[in-house]
Amino acid sequence: MEKDKNRNRRSPIFLIVSMLCFIILIIIIIYNFYSLNKSSTKNKELNNTLNTLKENYNIEINKESELKNNIDELNNIDNNISKTKEEVFKLASKLENKITNNETKYKIAYLTFDDGPYYSTDKVLDILKKYNIKATFFTIGLDKDICFDNKNYSCADTYKKIVDGGHTIANHTYSHLIFRGLYNNSELFINQVIKQEELIKDRTGVTTNILRFPGGSNTAKSLCRNDIDKIMKSLQDRHYGWVDWTAQDGDGGYLPSYEKAWSNFTNSINENIEVILFHDYSNITISMLPKAIEYLEERDYILLPLFYESIKVNK
């Protein structure tokens, strides 16, 4: 009886203690799960942060290799220009073949400027730079220390400006004196070629092997009938190639107006690979040049400087 009474008295206390323990355990569990949830969220956040950091790290690593390449490129800029130029000319050769076989809608135009440099050559170079166009300058050497079209200036440095602009500098003989003995005999002609070659080398450091006969190859052939084979052989021996032209605005002769120059020019453009003859002393040509470039580009012409391997360079 006494035992039962005690048990009855203990029962509520036992229950209360048990309930308290239960509640404490539940609180601990809730706290644990709350912490677990918080830690998991934090874990996800940390993983995301780490992934972002890793991505950024990879971006920076790629950037680093790109920057290192740029530094190498800049340190070896002359080699890189030569290498890229060679690649461009190789590709241009392929494009010429494709054009010849009618396998592409694209065409090539080689802008060429004869008889310079002149004071006005600077204007030509500025226009070409503005349009990111490279051209070919067939230069002579006689009387160029004082510019023919502006006696206050010397044209001696213009050879270097042409080369620095990335253009092809080519040989048009030293004197260009067609009717004063240039074509009298092969020896004299070749000496004129060599003299100009040396002048170009001296002024620019470039050895040229592309020639345009003053007056064109037909003039050369008609004026030195007997010696033309000798001339051609000598040029071949010196690894020269020569170029005529397929289009022009007529600025080498009498040109009465801009309109006449424009009509001459547009009427002469009809081949898929054009070599266009201009003269950098002609103010009409210079004022027409931007429009001429746009005209050619609108008609899918890619404007390039001449290179020895081109099919337009006769070897």
Partner: peptide
């Protein structure tokens, strides 16, 4: 370096553009 070799750098960029232009044409 770009400042020192500005003209050359521009020339290289221009040649690269020309190369891309020809590659696209090809």
């Amino acid at each position: 370096l770009k400042d020192e070799k500005k003209d050359k750098w521009e020339e290289l960029e221009e040649w690269k553009k020309t190369k891309i232009e020809i590659e696209e044409a090809l």
